[in-house]
Design a protein around this nucleic acid. Structure first.
Lengths: 146, 146
DNA sequence: TAAAAACTCTATAGTAACTATAGAGTCAAG
DNA sequence: CTTGACTCTATAGTTACTATAGAGTTTTTA
């Protein structure tokens, strides 16, 4: 029983264009085609896409997901690699949380500079934003992974 | 006293190409030019760029920064707008922290599925990733702002 | 049955915020 | 004067999607 891309999209909660994108990026193998050149997907594709979406929902990059798929495709591979990947990802998330919490503290500090005046000229926030010696380089723009 | 783009980059901690990018995006006005067509920046540009970098360090989008710059450029504008923008941004950050903390919990749960076996085939993590009924749609991919 | 609607296809470009590179011109140091 | 550092514009790339155009296929409707 094979399904077309629109049905796969509905089953996986993943957009049609994104499915095509994953195929283009090599995350999904090229599927069979109908006589009209429509993609036809079987169970293996469905499972693989669900795996990918699950990883994405965990904020893993496509690069990370590729690595996991590689391990999954190779049952002889050492399971410790999977654990290592997951561990690294957890740490990235922790770092991002930490950075955001720090950022929030700075924002809250800044908010308190609002003197309640109505004029932009007397705006403590704008002046605080124009004043660069409050926290300097301690706030980081690092992302979850890259 | 005017400086060239490389010096401005050093003073602001912002890459040369990024400065040109900000000009192209309209965040920075076009500067004066030397006879050799080099950009020449004065104090107003220096301050404006520092304002922009400060906002970026607070994870504000260029769109948000544009709005703030507009308010800053118009001293007659109501200061409450600034507060509103900042408030909205703080909430976005809070939401992002919340989402990441939830994500982390899922990741930690997943990590505990590792049975200690060596084989990918018996890997609890990979199986957990292939199993889509654990947390479904509750994990979100929302970003800080958009 | 024919027409309309829905779906699918590929190719291309865009989003956000940068970043890299190529080739050419300008300026400062040796 | 030559060399190296700096600057310039234009273009393309990064990541993970997303939109659109124009054409083909399939299903639904009248």
């Amino acid at each position: 029983m094979e399904i077309r891309i629109g049905d796969l999209a509905k089953r996986s909660g993943c957009e049609v264009v994104t499915i095509r994108y994953y195929e283009k990026e090599g995350l999904l193998p090229k599927p069979a085609r109908s006589g009209g050149n429509f993609r036809l997907y079987g169970d293996a594709h469905i499972e693989r896409l669900q795996f990918i979406r699950h990883c994405r929902s965990l904020d893993m990059t496509l690069s990370e997901i590729r690595a996991l798929l590689g391990l999954r495709d190779n049952p002889m591979q050492d399971c410790g690699e999977v654990n290592t990947l997951l561990e690294a990802h957890i740490q990235q998330v922790e770092m991002r949380v930490s950075a955001l919490l720090q950022l929030k503290r700075h924002l809250v500090d800044l908010r308190e500079k609002c003197s309640g005046s109505r004029s932009v000229e007397a705006c403590g926030i704008l002046q605080g934003l124009g004043n660069c010696n409050c926290h300097g380089e301690s706030a980081t723009n690092s992302q979850t992974s890259g």
